[in-house]
Write a protein that binds this DNA or RNA. Structure first.
Lengths: 348, 348
DNA sequence: GCACCAATTGAAATCGCTTACAAGGAAGGG
DNA sequence: CCCTTCCTTGTAAGCGATTTCAATTGGTGC
């Protein structure tokens, strides 16, 4: 008896049960579920009633198998621990929900191999679309996507050049803008606090932006001024300590994220370094707390939730075959607040 | 020609193709995928080779339909915008990944109806288990779960009484402990900053804890001292302003979250209120930034990621039929830091 | 040598739903 | 009044795996 396998008291109610109860064929039930307008009102009502009476719940897997769509979108982020990604996923999820899609979440922890593995799992699960973070990925990932012919979109890094759809921001330009602002204030001893760039094109681009802006003014970035640390408040604190022990110490520090900047500010206060009088510090992301710091953090505002929503729009359109731009650069804003000012007088 | 439906150049490689290539039956291929030890080494190797050669990727939906398990766990949280949930989901996801499960994410935005709707969708998607936040849910939700006979677990609120499996913390007791500590310091004019308790049993319990502790000392909570606001830094700021305009103003404010406490601290500084000399403030959650605030925030540490991991353990065990405790209370710690001290001398 | 058993394997029946195709009926046109 | 055409509906063939059950094979113990 096969039935006993799927045990429990009574076996689940199936679409065919609804059909029997409503006195119609399974095709009609399926139609009233997926294309009600194709069913005559009378029949439709009977079906709806039968569904309610029986408490019928469609079986997603069967549906996915037969229709070849899972109504599921995969999102593969580095980590949920970085709240900027959480915000983005939130935007994505909200938008997806409106269209009846669900989110299958996976994280790579910044490990390319793990990312490929996770992508494989997501594809196996039958996601109808996939959103990726960043444009630099293992070639195997793109191959898999191609082979499965699943629509996907790369986010965060805007890349008009590659051949993958891209919805993101100009990390490099944004950071260059920040540094230009610092340069205009008179800073030249500019340091960077940032996590490693390994498999993180966003960070790599931001760092590149610093060099760009300095090069424009004929300046070279002093490699000693690069403090690499993990993504955390403590990372920022330690980096600041390291940087301020250098001789000469930098007069401005750009951080590739607000979290790092916050850590740097905390440590600066602990060391009695006045911000911005003695040292300018800048962030990136414009997280909620940035404007409430003391002094308020000068940073770059990134539309995280919007990024997620746009990615959803793109995927939804692709799936539906609707035309939609596959290169969208979202604007970013330099928000000047209180952690930046002209450098302290030179000569230490 | 049916084939053309699922278009694209070549149709996807199926298990049967692998079988043909390897010269075995589909059953054998399936076995080497799901129970390799049941297949003779020679055959297994041929199958593995065929899989690699063809680039075969299992079809999740077909698999789910035939095996009646989706290898997917659903998680239904209020919102990803609250980073404490993000942390918890992260813990959950990490643990799940080890067992090859994926996470289907949905959020209710604190709306009970929406929660039921989302649960329905998750069940339709065939999740093998579901994690819920809080123990207070729409009866319809529990019915659905029962009917679908899907293992689930309620988290965050520990509830030894209900009939649902529960893995959480003692919100009420934790907050009571905090207030007792404040009472011991000499505070009696204690205020609360908290979001609405609507469909949020965690917050309701925390507020209850305040009353409990005060009642133990024969004190009654002054209802005017309750500032309700949205969950955000600004909410905390506004609430503090409101509270400190009261006469007499409270000497201590307990916040149901660190985010709110941070907002309160920001506003206190703006108003020139010395913390903790003139006013004690406490948080809840012990988010990363808490210890780095100025002064460091006295709060309650909550093992968010662990909560997620435990929920995963429970579900995994339930699915596998392994015995496992279905009531787990995770310990919580009062972390006394710098935002609390004896109250300012009375007489204003 | 022979019966018995364990280990492998394959054939075929599902799993629950979607949908191409055909059929039947009502409505509209000439 | 007959023929088209448009709506509705049902029949039945998949979708791509898993799994039961039986058959085959090769050892093993006496």
């Amino acid at each position: 008896m096969r039935k006993r396998l799927h045990s429990q008291a009574d076996s689940r109610v199936r679409l065919s049960d609804v059909a029997t109860t409503a006195g119609v064929s399974t095709a009609t039930v399926s139609r009233t579920l997926n294309a009600p307008e194709k069913v005559a009102p009378a029949a439709r009502e009977r079906v709806v009633a039968a569904i309610a009476e029986l408490g019928y719940v469609p079986h997603g897997a069967a549906r996915a198998l037969a229709s070849q769509r899972s109504m599921t979108i995969g999102v593969l982020i580095p980590t949920l621990e970085n709240s900027i990604f959480a915000a983005s996923v939130h935007g994505l999820e909200q938008r997806l929900e409106r269209d009846g899609y669900n989110l299958l979440l996976a994280s790579s922890e910044y490990d390319p191999d793990r990312e490929v593995a996770q992508a494989k799992v997501l594809i196996e699960r039958g996601v109808d679309g996939l959103v990726l973070v960043g444009t630099a990925h293992h070639p195997a990932l793109y191959e898999r996507l191609q082979q499965a012919s699943i629509p996907y979109v790369t986010t965060w890094s805007f890349d008009s050049g590659g051949d993958a759809p891209s919805i993101g921001i100009d990390n490099r330009g944004a950071m260059a803008g920040m540094v230009r602002y610092l340069l205009d204030l008179g800073h030249t001893a500019i340091a960077i606090i940032s996590p490693s760039v390994d498999s993180n094109d966003r960070i790599a681009a931001r760092r590149g932006g610093v060099r760009d802006a300095m090069a424009e003014r004929g300046l070279a970035f002093d490699e000693r001024y690069l403090a690499e640390c993990r993504y955390s408040i403590m990372g920022g604190r330690e980096s600041l300590r390291f940087l301020m022990n250098l001789d000469p110490a930098p007069t401005a520090i750009v951080c590739t994220s607000d979290v790092l900047a916050f850590g740097a500010m905390v440590e600066a206060r602990a060391q009695g370094i006045a911000i911005p009088a003695a040292l300018s510090i800048t962030g990136f992301d414009d997280l909620d707390f940035a404007e409430h710091l003391q002094p308020p953090l000068t940073t770059i505002h990134v539309p995280a939730a919007d990024l997620g929503a746009r990615a959803a729009d793109y995927l939804l359109a692709s799936i539906a075959g609707r035309p939609i731009a596959d290169r969208i650069e979202l604007p970013v804003n330099l928000i000047v607040r209180g952690t930046t000012s002209r450098p302290r007088p030179t000569g230490s």
